[in-house]
């Protein structure tokens, strides 16, 4: 390698390391602050490493707000919306990918059109609907409106389209009906796509904020993000505790992400390529 090439390579790595440290610094600072005793949080110059880990912040944050309840709510809502969405999406995506029916084009284009409207437009009418049904502060209003997704339908439709029609012809000759064929042949063949849809839904549901903020009043119905936002307003300058609560909110998502980072990154990458 020439001198110039070596120089270029070293420069590239240094630049990348610098940028990556800037991006990761908030995570480091979150975790480090969450482990600092109160006397080491508000000091100048800041301490990069706590003298010894102070776990009390986690205990205090956990008791300052019902984070246990928030976790249960978030977990339950995310799991239920994910299951619901996967089922409705598989059915609808299959119809669009493999069936020939009256009004297909119109219905598909109407989904595309629906995507153009910002979600904020739906908030007030849905809030009114929830009040009229007596659904405010219930799990229904946090789950049912989210069990269908246009993004999911589009993504799975692409997957289903790649499955050869000959399989369906063969299945028919064996006396298999369409419903059974869908669940026993198409679904197992499209596992990566379904997992991607499910992961994005789970994370989206876990991170959802404005909808939950509007639809809930009771503390007992809050999810992690709403609970954390309220805690942030109330915690004032207890940054050790706030960072402990933030770490707790991030941790489940990070675990899921590290278990399935390939699906996440490919899911995003695919959305850009047409």
């Amino acid at each position: 390698m020439s001198m110039r090439k070596v120089f270029f390579k070293v420069f590239t790595y240094l630049l990348l390391l610098l940028l990556v440290s800037a991006v990761l610094l908030p995570f480091y600072w979150m975790v480090v602050t969450s482990l600092k005793p109160p006397g080491e949080v508000n000091v100048i110059p800041p301490k990069w490493i706590p003298s010894k880990p102070f776990w009390q912040n986690y205990v205090r944050a956990w008791h300052a707000a019902p984070f246990g309840r928030y976790f249960i709510n978030s977990f339950f809502i995310s799991v239920m919306t994910t299951i619901g969405e996967v089922v409705t999406t598989i059915l609808a995506a299959y119809a669009f990918a493999k069936m020939d029916f009256f009004g297909k084009k119109v219905l598909f284009l109407s989904l595309l059109g629906l995507m153009m409207f910002p979600g904020q437009l739906r908030l007030i009418p849905n809030f009114m609907l929830a009040s009229n049904l007596g659904w405010t502060d219930t799990y229904q209003i946090l789950i049912i409106p989210w069990i269908a997704s246009i993004f999911g339908i589009f993504l799975l439709r692409q997957y289903f389209k790649t499955i050869p029609d000959e399989l369906w012809d063969a299945a028919q000759l064996d006396g298999c009906n369409r419903f059974r064929y869908l669940w026993t042949v198409v679904v197992p063949l499209s596992k990566p796509g379904i997992i991607t849809v499910a992961l994005f839904k789970f994370v989206g549901s876990w991170n959802a904020f404005l909808w939950v903020l509007i639809m809930t009043n009771k503390t007992s119905m809050r999810t992690i993000p709403v609970g954390l936002a309220v805690f942030r307003s109330e915690a004032g300058t207890h940054f050790g505790e706030l960072m402990a609560a933030s770490t707790m909110a991030v941790l489940p998502i990070l675990i899921i992400f590290f278990l399935a980072q390939k699906q996440f990154i490919q899911g995003v990458a695919r959305s850009g390529i047409k």
């Binding site: 990556v20 991170n207 942030r232 909110a249």
Partner: peptide, 21 residues
């Protein structure tokens, strides 16, 4: 993966950290 992390992080948690930073 490292660059991608903030995107997957809950917005509320990320913003809370920024309040402190």
């Amino acid at each position: 993966t490292a660059f991608f992390l903030p995107w997957i992080t809950p917005m509320v948690a990320g913003a809370s950290v920024f309040v402190w930073l």
